[in-house]
């Protein structure tokens, strides 16, 4: 298997021996890896610094290439230099991994599962009420409209609204009791 490490290490050894062609290929390859590395680690506002960091790291690799020990992994050495350059960049620009307090709600995932489960329960229960009364129950019991409002908007008398709601609720209650029985 020809891993990245084996490939880059071969190129580095040739470069240390003075082979400019291998060195060009190596730097090209390393530049691409570094770009991805820095882009992954820079916040959106600082993505523009990635190219500067790539060039700075390439310069450091060049001037300090004598510190690569041939019996050690090349990628580990390169990563240590890239990491140093990144931390140095953060330090120089006083970048801290902070978030304004106002945005903190976006940072933490809120647990919506209870609310969702409740809504699903209600909707399933409503299905067990007669079709006519479903909408009426929904509007009075969940949306909180008054009997008079609902009667007015549906054109029904207040009495028939009440009766319809009552029937619907009884059906739901029956359904709940049935469930309770199922559980036994």
């Amino acid at each position: 298997m020809h891993s990245v490490e084996t490939r880059l290490k071969e190129l580095m050894l040739a470069s240390l021996a003075g082979d400019a062609r291998s060195y060009g290929v190596l730097l090209d390859d390393v530049a691409r890896h570094l770009r991805a590395y820095f882009l992954r680690r820079l916040a959106d506002a600082h993505k523009g610094d990635a190219d500067d960091l790539v060039q700075e790291t390439l310069m450091a690799l060049h001037t300090r290439r004598a510190t690569y020990e041939v019996d050690r992994p090349f990628t580990a050495w390169l990563h240590a230099i890239a990491r140093y350059k990144l931390i140095d960049h953060f330090r120089r620009n006083r970048i801290r991994a902070t978030v304004p307090l106002d945005d903190v709600e976006d940072l933490f995932v809120q647990d919506q599962s209870d609310v969702t489960a409740d809504r699903m329960d209600v909707e399933r229960l409503l299905q067990s009420a007669p079709e006519r009364s479903r909408d009426l129950i929904y509007r009075t019991k969940i949306q909180g409209q008054s009997i008079a409002e609902v009667a007015q908007s549906t054109g029904l008398s207040e009495t028939s609204v009440k009766v319809s709601i009552h029937r619907g609720l009884r059906a739901i209650t029956a359904r709940l009791k049935g469930h309770a029985n199922d559980d036994k």
Binding site: S15, L16, A17, G18, D19, A20, R21, Y23, G24, L27, D28, A31, D51, V54, Q55, L58, M59, H62, R65, A66
Partner: peptide, 16 residues
């Protein structure tokens, strides 16, 4: 970055 790589390759010397 390509210019930089070309420059660095051009001035490469063997390292002991």
């Amino acid at each position: 970055t390509n210019d930089l790589i070309a420059r660095l390759s051009a001035e490469l010397k063997p390292v002991s």
